[in-house]
């Protein structure tokens, strides 16, 4: 089995939403780690381990917002799924958008999951807990993290 806790990368430009995810994770007390970046280009640099991210841990799961500055979530997703070294990392689209066009586009680019942010915090916390449990406990990743 796994020898270190599941590592999430959260790509979210809205500081309040990022904090909500962190507060929810703290309350849920599921063992996992998480890093947070604020735009699409930063996410790509993180994933490639460029510059300040040279020593970063490769994420087991990416939680990806859609409306992001510089490079939006669809572009980051397409980038990841068309690169051999990143294509196997599961990507969960985590967004306020319930537009059909966004959902269709995300799955066309091989998103692994599509989740909309609940408005009510208790729901939000449960959603985050379910994501943590599913990706950190029940799901087996494609390869052992290097």
């Amino acid at each position: 089995m796994k020898n270190q806790p599941t590592h999430f990368l959260l790509v979210e430009d809205e500081p309040a939403h990022a904090e909500l995810v962190k507060i929810a994770m703290d309350e849920n007390a599921v063992a996992n780690t998480m890093d947070h970046v604020e735009d699409g280009e930063e996410a790509v640099r993180y994933l490639n381990g460029e510059g300040q991210y040279a020593g970063r841990r490769r994420p087991d799961v990416v939680l990806l917002d859609i409306r992001l500055p510089k490079m939006d979530g669809h572009e980051v997703l397409e980038y990841m799924k068309t690169r051999d070294h990143l294509s196997t990392i599961p990507v969960v689209m985590l967004t306020t958008s319930d537009a059909d066009s966004d959902r269709i586009k995300a799955y066309e680019h091989n998103a692994n999951s599509y989740v909309t942010k609940p408005v009510d915090f208790e729901q939000f916390r449960k959603m985050v807990r379910d994501l943590q449990l599913y990706w950190a406990v029940w799901n087996h990743p494609p390869v052992t993290t290097p």
Partner: peptide, 9 residues
């Protein structure tokens, strides 16, 4: 989402 979330908190 922010308003409702933080109100609940």
């Amino acid at each position: 989402v922010t308003l409702q979330g933080y109100l609940d908190l």
